[in-house]
């Protein structure tokens, strides 16, 4: 049983107009076996939270802590976090020209496990996982994400999730841009990984659609860099009906501005 604990997290980025605070005191605790959904309008800081947990250099933590079973995650480099068991399925996976998927997957698996996987089992595992996610076998010969469609990139992220077996998976809008068939395939992959019982999941999404396939235990609503409401799965149903508007009305001036900006974007 592991615990990922985020306490009073403040995060800012440097922009041309100066420093901008995006997360304004976020607290969240996820345990093995739990699925947490983070929902919120565009620009509310959901993806910033995901990237900050993974350690993207663009985001500066100005206050608060992130710990994994008591270990200071913020003190770890990006690769150390991954080896400690954190996995970020990215919203926009980048193409890495010239690096084949085969080479990449094996290198990453070796780094995470601390030893090279047995070649025979590994090849079999990769093939099986790819088949379940309906990824063509020839993808292993292609370069990482190069020329993949949006849906293919997302499926390949989930392929990595299934192969690397992290302790905590953070899915950053994995559902956006997917058609319903791809959404099902991807959700099944996440559910398979979750069913093994050794993983906690943080599911970041703009839409409630994916929650029909992946059942959250907790739902947190993000507005303007803060959690404004928390609850069980029923909260997602309510969001489905009412949208995010009521948060903007009830919250302070700053969040109304954020909601307005989001509406324009």
């Amino acid at each position: 049983m592991s615990t990922l604990e985020i306490k009073d997290l403040h995060v800012s980025i440097d922009t041309e107009q100066g420093t901008k605070e995006i997360l304004k005191g976020v607290s969240l605790t996820i345990k093995t076996g739990e699925t947490h959904a983070i929902m919120g309008p565009n620009g509310s800081g959901k993806s910033t939270l995901a990237s900050t947990i993974a350690g993207h250099p663009r985001y500066n933590v100005t206050g608060g802590t992130i710990t994994l079973d008591g270990e200071d995650v913020l003190a770890m480099s990006v690769d150390e976090r991954a080896r400690a068991g954190l996995f970020l399925a990215m919203q926009y996976p980048v193409e890495v020209p010239g690096v084949s998927m085969t080479n990449f997957l094996r290198t990453a698996k070796t780094a995470i496990d601390g030893e090279a996987p047995s070649l025979r089992h590994w090849t079999k595992d990769v093939k099986a996982a790819m088949a379940q996610l309906r990824i063509d076998a020839d993808f292993t010969q292609r370069n990482v994400n190069e020329g993949f469609s949006g849906g293919e990139k997302k499926r390949v992220e989930i392929l990595q999730l299934e192969l690397f077996k992290p302790r905590f998976a953070i899915l950053d809008e994995t559902d956006s841009g997917l058609d319903v068939d791809a959404l099902k395939v991807v959700s099944e992959g996440v559910n398979r990984a979750h069913a093994e019982g050794n993983m906690g999941t943080l599911l970041i999404t703009h839409y409630t659609r994916i929650l029909r396939y992946i059942k959250p235990d907790f739902v947190h609503v993000f507005v303007d860099g803060q959690v404004v409401e928390e609850g069980g799965p029923e909260l997602a149903d309510r969001l489905e009906e009412e949208g995010y508007d009521r948060y903007a009305k009830g919250a302070g001036a700053a969040s109304i501005a954020a909601a307005a900006a989001a509406a324009q974007a």
Binding site: G55, S77, D79, L88, V94, V96, T107, A108
Partner: peptide, 21 residues
């Protein structure tokens, strides 16, 4: 960042990228 977020050390990641290039 993408490669390091998969547990690959900076040194190996740089090598992969140059090799890939």
């Amino acid at each position: 960042f993408y490669l390091m977020a998969r547990g690959i050390s900076e040194e190996v990641a740089r090598r992969l990228v140059v090799r890939g290039f």
